[in-house]
Amino acid sequence: MQSVWTLLSWGPEGWLDDIAYGVFITVSLAAATLPVGLVIGFLVALAKQSDEPSLRLAGNIYTTIFRGLPELLTLFIIFYGAQIGIQQVMRLYNPTAAVEVNAFVSGMIALGVVFSSYASEVFLSAFRAIPKGQYEGGYSVGLSGWQTMQLVVLPQLIRIALPGLANLWLILLKDTALVSAIGLTDILRQAGVAARVTKHAFLFFGVAALIYLLLAIISSFGINAIERAVGRQQVQR
């Protein structure tokens, strides 16, 4: 029976290097998903607060579907379904084309759509918190619609939406664990392999949980720094 420290050491004997690789995959997946989710979420929020009913409808269908499906199911559907779908479309043009959507990209898309549907709600309530006078003020000093959005609305929006988005980031970090089910070697999958091979299940799953906890703690520090940087203190009354 090997000691706990051998099992957790770096190198061929221990599993620390494998788990470190898992941490790298988890963090890069979450980091790659974040911008995608934010941009889509913002666009969906724009659609949902528009005056045009058809745009609102399109946005609402999006959030209804992707907030209603279990993340695991969304992941499976995109991983297996999207690949077959894209393949068939490609075959129409080029019968020999082989497209591969790998597990990382599938995970990114699946987590991105889920993140964006929640993010759109956060942005939407932030939009509602900005008084109409701000837009009118923008027009009255001669700014175009896009300039108003960029210079007047967006800076305030980010400040208001930040706590909600920070919360979503923490959820995203945890949701990445699901990609272990489609074969991406993230923290949980590496821990699972180690647990199966060494039969020290409690040790390795415990270590995995602690790593997620550590990531959450680091994130909270980062979020606090960002909140200070955007001057959240000023708007607090």
Binding site: A195, F202, Y212
Partner: peptide
């Protein structure tokens, strides 16, 4: 702890961890 770690990891911890 319970809000900071994935439910999947917690479930594995209980199922396989407790099994040992």
């Amino acid at each position: 702890f319970f809000r900071g770690t994935p439910l999947l990891a917690q479930t594995f911890l209980v199922y396989y961890g407790v099994g040992s």
